[in-house]
Amino acid sequence: MSTNPRVSSAIEGESPHFASVLAHQPAIAERFGALYGAFWDSDVLSARLKEVARMRNARITQCGFCRNVRFDKAVAQGLGEEVVAEIDEGYEASARLSDTEKAILKFTDAIIHDPELLTGADRAALQKHLSPDQIAELGLGVTLFLALAKALITMGLEPERMERSVLPTPSRAMAG
């Protein structure tokens, strides 16, 4: 995987990173910001549950940037490092992850890795733990996490090194 940026920054004085590269396409950037902000603002599905899916996506897609970012709203809802560490192989046996979180991880794996992984029992478990609106929001989240990670990687925007960072959760207010 390359860490050489394949696109220049569109913002003078800034190095290439996701926002400065996306600035080449202002309409995409603006609408992505509005969508991602509204998604994280919504509490239909809690930030903690969204972050569980985002962390799983980061591990499977090998997105180093995604893997090292934590959103503060999820941290405030109890998603500490001891829980994040268990969003890994063998998560099914975790005592720290709830049944709802395990159902979300199964669904995330099925989308990102292999749709055959989502058995009839897994579908039923997801529908037991989440309402239809929550499943829709989760589906949107996994779609965006996956697409964002792959776009970032294929444009060569992976950082060579990055410390773990807790960042403000995206919001409509941040999108402007």
Binding site: V21, P115, P132, I135, T143, L146
Partner: peptide
């Protein structure tokens, strides 16, 4: 830049379709 977003979204949408997201909802 647009291509990277479009191709990544197309991939994610195929995958959402393959788990039949709409039926789950």
């Amino acid at each position: 830049v647009a291509l990277s977003v479009v191709a990544a979204l197309a991939d994610a949408e195929c995958r959402a379709g393959m788990v039949d997201l709409e039926a789950l909802v």
